[in-house]
Simulated assay, not measured.
Amino acid sequence: MMTVFYLISNRQQHNSGRGGSYFSSASVAKVMSENLKVYYFNIGDHDSPVAKEILGNKYINLKMGGLNNFYSIFKYIYMTFKYRPDVVHIYDLVVVFFAYFSQLFSSSKIVLTQPGGANRAVPSKYTPKNVITCSVENFNFYKELKECKHVVNISNRVIPFSTNEKSVGKLKELINYKPTDLIVMKVGRLDNYYGLGIQQAYDFYKELKENHVSVKLIYLGHHENGFMPNPEALCDPDVFFVQDQHFTKDAKTVIDIANYIVANGRSAMEACFLGKRLLVPSKKHGLISINRENYIEAINYNFSERIVVNDSESISCTESSFFYKSLFEDYFNIKNASKKYEQFYVKSVKDSPKLIYLLKSFTSLFFNFR
């Protein structure tokens, strides 16, 4: 049976360990553990609560910072000796040192997943030969790098889930829900990075309110990086900023309350699973209603704000719940992608990093976790 190590970094100054990369990597590891021997390493200065909850005893925290760096490296060496991974699958280049280091003690191949985001210059000498992307946008970038020999695009995926009816009930109490209410929900961090989408959701809510007696807007997500919402939204009695961990720690289990979901990335896919009317914020077109005319472009951009569609395709139209649920089964159900991952692992090629790269990545690791 093939053994796979999954590695991701987690630095408090950059993230909370609750973002999409942690959900994505942990979800992949969980599904792959049904057929492979899997170990997931969270490498950083704090735990990832979402990965820990998804993976249970397959989750291993390697605490970094100060003298912890040496202890974690020795622990990783011990795990490498003990389990001899066939593949080390990393989700960022911060942890590439561990991936390179594993090759000194095992015949492992290194795989990098680029889980979304804008294309940016990467230190190509550190980039593994095997790369999985989650968007066509990233795929087109990596396939042009001469260092990357084996590149494939596997759209981001989520695990089917159940709604937490008890939590939905509490959320209804919180917003004084009435059966006649039309609910718009913006899912995601309250963060300056997502400020455009946050404002677009409010504009959409105001537009609906002109034509409906009772409309409510819920912002579901953590407040980060000193973000200040629109003062008008803060004073609106029908706008709710829900940040309680009871609701946000597993946001997908309460989104069934909504009629319209405004979301990017994984949250958009979770909305499709429930058959919800999906709206994606974009920098170029405003709020895009996902429909049969533009869903391919949305997938190609991993439902990011960088999505570009024809103007005629961004016009709002009505799609059935069945359309969104079919979209989920065809593109986003992670259980339908496990064979693709396994085949990619088998066909991957082995890296042969130079000693200087190993030393430089080691220095970079300590710089990131001082």
Rank of each mutant, 00 (worst) to 15 (best):
K209T: 03
T180V: 03
S135F: 12
K75A: 15
P353S: 03
I43Q: 04
S106H: 12
I43D: 03
C317R: 12
K340P: 07
F366A: 09
K172C: 07
D244W: 11
H46D: 15
P160C: 12
R11A: 13
V346R: 15
F97I: 15
S321D: 06
L287V: 01
E34Q: 10
V239G: 07
S338G: 02
D244P: 10
V187E: 05
G221K: 01
F81Q: 07
Y219I: 07
P115N: 12
F323I: 08
Y295G: 00
I307P: 11
F97C: 08
K149A: 04
A271D: 11
I132H: 06
T318E: 06
R157L: 10
I73E: 07
K30I: 14
K37F: 15
V38W: 04
Q12L: 13
Y219G: 13
Y126F: 14
K186Y: 12
E165P: 00
D47H: 13
S21Y: 00
L190S: 00
Y194H: 00
N138Q: 14
S21P: 02
F303T: 09
A118W: 00
G20T: 05
S321I: 11
Y76L: 09
D47S: 07
E319I: 04
H246Q: 14
S135C: 05
S338F: 01
R120Y: 09
K216L: 05
Y357E: 13
E293W: 06
Q199I: 03
I198V: 02
I299W: 13
F303M: 07
F161Q: 13
A268I: 12
Y71V: 08
N230Y: 00
L171N: 15
N130Q: 09
Y71T: 15
P179W: 12
D244F: 07
F74H: 05
V239N: 04
G265N: 03
S33I: 14
S361F: 10
V349L: 06
D191T: 00
E144T: 08
S289Q: 11
K335L: 15
G117I: 01
V131Y: 02
S102R: 14
Y193W: 02
G17E: 10
I296K: 05
Y142C: 02
N336G: 10
G17C: 12
S321G: 04
Q200V: 00
V87S: 10
A233L: 01
K82V: 05
Q199F: 01
K63Y: 13
F139A: 11
T248A: 06
S289L: 01
H89Q: 13
A99C: 05
I154C: 04
L112C: 08
T127P: 00
S267D: 08
A337T: 14
L171K: 14
H285D: 13
V136I: 15
S16V: 03
K172F: 04
N69S: 06
P85E: 03
A29Q: 06
I307Q: 09
K129W: 00
S361N: 11
S107N: 10
A251S: 12
F74C: 05
R120H: 05
H285K: 12
I90A: 05
G17Y: 10
K37M: 11
L279R: 09
E224K: 07
L359N: 07
L278G: 12
S155T: 08
G221D: 04
Y301H: 14
L55K: 10
Y100Q: 06
